[in-house]
């Protein structure tokens, strides 16, 4: 019995020790620094100020609150778009799932998910150049829309970020919902057909209820990613114009690495961490539920 215990420990302990050293240290150190007035260029002069960093970024300055607002605005808009478009796309690919090529088309569609965020940013920086980019050329030539600063005026910049974000992640929602549609038993469709139900009825009464847990799962997983949204903004709008696309992770980045105010930066990181943990807790509950529903499928 004793041997078994050791054997079991060997399965689990190495990972826990590894994470304790590598992952917990940054976490504790960030929390610790968030209570100090600290600048990276003069760490020996840091001094304890308690909650003041949190007070400053949350209540005395308008940038971080705007960043929180922007983060959730971008998150909710992109996720809404992703669900609607993702559902439509999933339906289309579901209907043609037995057709040749449909598999190839689907594979090409989901490629953006896996691409390097840095490269995605650069691709759109190239395309969205208002004077020389292909996007403004197409708008101008085929639709007669004069170029404007797609990344440089408040509303267009926000829309651009949401669009790029959705472009990269709608395919995720699509394959997720496609997996959901696959779980709908064929008999239900046939029963509906016999009853003469129209497509709207099929959608609202059969499909949506059975993919609801998939949608929820998609929402929380995407929310976790959106809270950490950084690379696209870093490359394209740099948080601008003004602070129209300033988001939490970008604020943390520039506080820590442009101003080197690592105390304030850590405070904002801890806030992101707390928000992420709340969302993750919800996610985990959902994950366990979806898994249970799926049973041993």
């Amino acid at each position: 019995m004793k041997n078994e215990k050791i054997e079991k420990l060997l399965f689990i302990l190495p990972t826990c020790l590894f994470l304790l050293v590598i992952s917990i240290f940054p976490f504790l150190y960030s929390v610790y620094l968030s209570l100090f007035q600290a600048k990276l260029t003069k760490m020996h002069k840091k001094f304890f100020i308690g909650w003041e960093n949190y007070q400053i970024i949350l209540f005395e300055d308008d940038v971080f609150p705007t960043a929180i607002k922007n983060t959730f605005m971008i998150a909710f808009s992109s996720i809404t778009i992703e669900i609607i478009l993702g559902f439509i796309m999933a339906k289309i690919f579901f209907e043609i799932r037995h057709v040749k090529f449909s598999n190839a088309l689907r594979t090409v569609t989901i490629m953006p998910i896996m691409l390097t965020p840095l490269c995605v940013g650069l691709v759109f920086l190239y395309i969205l150049n208002p004077t020389l980019g292909i996007f403004s050329y197409i708008l101008d030539t085929f639709f007669g829309i004069e170029p404007f600063a797609y990344l440089g005026e408040p509303l267009p910049a926000q829309i651009s970020i949401i669009a790029i974000n959705s472009w990269q992640w709608t395919p995720f929602m699509m394959i997720l919902l496609l997996a959901g549609l696959m779980t709908v038993p064929n008999e239900q469709y046939e029963a509906a057909k016999i009853d003469g139900a129209n497509w709207f009825h099929v959608m609202t009464k059969i499909e949506i209820p059975s993919i609801l847990s998939f949608v929820l799962l998609g929402v929380v997983l995407r929310l976790i990613e959106c809270i950490r949204l950084f690379d696209i903004i870093y490359i394209t709008t740099k948080g601008g114009p003004g602070i129209a696309t300033e988001v939490m992770a970008f604020f943390t980045y520039r506080t820590e690495f442009r101003s080197f105010q690592i105390g304030t930066g850590s405070a904002s990181a801890v806030i992101i961490l707390i928000i992420s943990l709340i969302v993750t807790t919800i996610a985990v509950t959902l994950l366990r539920r979806v898994e249970k529903n799926e049973g041993l499928s």
Partner: peptide, 28 residues
Amino acid sequence: FKFKGRFFLADWILSTRMLPPVAAAVPL
């Protein structure tokens, strides 16, 4: 292994991923 606290351990492992990489860079 059906030991006590395994769900907690699993959740804890997942939570270590939640610190934004930006914040982890300097401590690491």
